[in-house]
Simulated scan of single mutants.
Amino acid sequence: MLRSVAVVALPHVAAFELATACEVFGIDRSETGGPTFDFRVCGPSPGVVMPTKGGFSIVVDHGLDATRDADLVIMPAYSMPPARVPHDVLDALRDAHARGAWILSICSGAFALGEAGLLDGRRCTTHWMHAAALAARFPAATVDPDVLYVEDGRIITGAGTAAGIDACLHLVRRELGAAAATNVARRMVVPPQRDGGQAQYVDTPLPPVADTLAPLLGWMLEHLDEDLGVPALAARALMSERTFARRFRAETGATPAAWVARQRVGRAQELLERTDVPVDEVARRSGFGTAALLRHHFARTLGTTPLAYRRRFGCASGAPPDLEQDEQAS
């Protein structure tokens, strides 16, 4: 169970990536039913004023001993090209991994994991601008520059900047379930899970726009059981269907249909975790309509069935009798 989190801040730590870890794991969300973690920011020189890449300085209160009992150790981005990481930081990362803790890097934080030898023989990622350098520096690693994050064993590497949010939410979902991840995402006003990869951002920056689809995405999450086809959504966004589809893919990295399907799977995960309602009702409430369609998307997205998922993550009193029969019919 994920309870304690330690973030290692090095000189010239990236402000956004550090803040991402703080936002996901450092806020008490108990008042809204969300998770709360024992959260610490630590470093090799506690109490010393340390510059960040954001044009301001910070003081870290905890030393690296804060990593010794952490369930998760996070390595955010730091100076680029990356400076050599202090030996005591590398030792802390190795020790945490050896005792079974999760290790998560964001952006160029992957270079520290590489120096610690934790990427040897593993798939990993980093910001697309640094992927070739990571692959050249650590040839025993398999660097995938096209994804938002990679989980390999108990090591998660996130790509650039906002992909750190995706990586952190993935781990919350992995350890605590879809409901916890959705709670955190809702408070952050971000999708619980994005589709697509980094390739959509390489050398093709989006032109600045005066508005955003964020309000519409929030509305869609609250109305997953309604018609969310492109004609209806485009009309709600006051755009042509072609413009809406292009803008949607640019902002989310997925087609409207793919994004909606993934969010409906997430809603079904929540219902399977927290309720005993039959799979037909789960399918209806999550917007799939039929149990057969729900099973299809569950298998394609999660590689499992609704019943198997409920058995593993369900917190309710037990699955209703007809769920077993419905699964066997698939």
Rank of each mutant, 00 (worst) to 15 (best):
E226R: 07
R187T: 14
S45L: 05
E115S: 08
L228M: 10
S79H: 10
M80D: 02
F16T: 08
M129G: 11
D276S: 01
A283P: 06
P192A: 05
A110V: 00
Q269M: 11
K53A: 13
T304M: 08
G287M: 13
D91I: 06
Q200A: 06
A131F: 03
R137M: 05
P139L: 01
I155N: 01
P192R: 04
S30W: 04
F16P: 11
R99S: 01
C124G: 11
E251I: 09
A232F: 15
P46S: 02
T36E: 09
S57M: 11
A21P: 11
D211R: 15
A268F: 14
S4I: 06
G218V: 07
D146Q: 08
I103Q: 02
M50L: 01
V189R: 15
G158Y: 04
R186D: 14
T182D: 14
E17R: 10
L90F: 01
N183E: 13
G287P: 14
V143P: 01
F56K: 00
A112Q: 04
R68I: 05
A232G: 15
S317C: 13
A180T: 13
A83H: 14
A254Y: 03
T305P: 14
A9D: 01
V8N: 05
A92H: 04
P82E: 06
S79Y: 06
C42T: 02
M220F: 03
L104P: 10
D71Q: 07
G33H: 07
V89K: 00
R29D: 03
G177K: 01
A15I: 09
Q193A: 05
Q263K: 10
A98S: 04
A235N: 02
H62I: 02
R312C: 00
D326A: 07
V190I: 05
R186A: 14
A116L: 04
L104Y: 02
G100Y: 01
V282P: 10
D65T: 09
V48T: 08
E31T: 15
E327H: 12
A308K: 03
F298E: 06
V172N: 08
A6T: 07
R68Y: 11
L224A: 04
A110Q: 07
V147Q: 03
T142I: 02
A112T: 04
C168N: 04
R122W: 05
G26I: 13
L271I: 04
R173Y: 02
